[in-house]
Amino acid sequence: MSLLPKDVAKVAHLARLALNEADIPKYSENLTNILGFIEQMNEVDTSHIEPMAHPLDAHQRLRPDVVTEHNQRELFQTLTLHTEAGLYLVPQVIETKIEE
């Protein structure tokens, strides 16, 4: 599988990464090589293998339904200059949001 410059642009958009136009051919070459390298995986038949998501065969632990965190807005909002009236500011969201 090769990642042509137009594919790189598509993936970069999906990942919301601005790339310098001039760097795209290099990314295209690098990523194509990496994908080629990754495709060595196809040498092994895995049709009867269960996928493994986690190194440990453990289950999710649960915590009690108790409020433990309290307002730290002031502290957290020292991390950005872009707040007003306690809200984080972003360029106007033009489209009406679809609840996902």
Binding site: M41, N42, V44, T46, I49, E50, P51, M52, A53
Partner: peptide, 8 residues
């Protein structure tokens, strides 16, 4: 595929 190889 990678998750399956991970198990192997």
């Amino acid at each position: 595929k990678a998750q399956k190889l991970r198990r192997i």
